[in-house]
């Protein structure tokens, strides 16, 4: 009877031992897998150039510069407007403080930008400036609440040297000028920009570079 009990006890003990070892192994296994998974990104992830829709409501400002030289350098910068809005006030350098940049009144040559922009805002859509010369064509217009500036540098030969197109929503300009005198409120402008739909803001094409600045809801440039 006692030998039966001893045998039963030994079997229970052996079972417990095996169970404990198995539990330890099972518990440790995911740790190893986790360590491997953590180590996995060691290889640099390749560029994800496929357009990914950003989270709902996210607005991204994209800048793309393509050099037309032999090396074909391309620069792509994608900035979430929300990030820029939050980070910009933290930059205090030179003329930039609290998200506002000081403008040197000497550089605007006594032109009251605020009054000028107010005049444009209240005016009807139309062309304000049209200059057609041998070297340059300049067009400044207001169309569907956007200020449009179009400059074509024809160069001396008359062939198209460079072309600049700027299209800025009036609300963004208003926000930009909403700070005190001699100041541009960049954060307010970014905030106003965020409320706009997908739009191309700046396009510059010349012999050396192609620059494009635009706004959309994708978190990668095309």
């Amino acid at each position: 009877m006692s030998s039966l009990k001893r045998a039963k006890g030994a079997r229970t003990q052996s079972l417990f031992t095996k169970g404990a070892l198995l539990t330890a192994a099972l518990v440790l296994a995911p740790l190893g897998a986790f360590a491997q998974a953590t180590a996995a990104p060691a290889k640099p992830a390749q560029s994800t150039s496929s357009a990914t829709p950003a989270a709902k409501g996210e607005r991204w400002l994209h800048v793309r510069v393509i050099c037309n030289d032999a090396k074909g350098e391309t620069v792509r910068v994608n900035v979430p407007l929300e990030l820029a809005e939050k980070v910009l006030p933290a930059v205090n350098h030179d003329r930039l403080h609290d998200g506002k940049v000081k403008i040197d009144s000497a550089h605007v040559e006594d032109v009251d930008l605020r009054v000028l922009m107010d005049a444009i805002r209240t005016a009807r859509d139309g062309e304000y400036v049209t200059v057609q010369g041998n070297e340059n064509d300049v067009r400044v217009a207001k169309e569907s609440n956007h200020l449009i500036i179009h400059v074509v540098d024809k160069g001396k030969g008359g062939s198209k040297n460079s072309q600049v197109e700027i299209k800025v929503p009036m609300k963004v300009i208003d926000a930009l000028l909403s700070a005190g005198k001699d100041e541009l409120d960049l954060v307010a402008a970014l905030h106003a920009l965020g409320a706009q739909g997908d739009t191309e803001l700046v396009s510059v094409k010349d012999r050396e570079n192609t620059v494009k600045v635009w706004l959309d809801s994708k978190n990668v440039s095309d």
């Binding site: 560029s47 994800t48 050099c67 032999a70 090396k71 074909g72 350098e73 391309t74 620069v75 792509r76 910068v77 994608n78 900035v79 979430p80 929300e82 990030l83 939050k86 980070v87 006030p89 933290a90 930059v91 978190n219 990668v220 440039s221």
Partner: peptide, 27 residues
Amino acid sequence: PLTHALIKELKKFPDADFVEVTDDDQH
């Protein structure tokens, strides 16, 4: 302060490409 603000905001964008510069032999 800039770094702190930047990191705090970057955490909201866990998977995003911010800057990419490529030419024929550099990336």
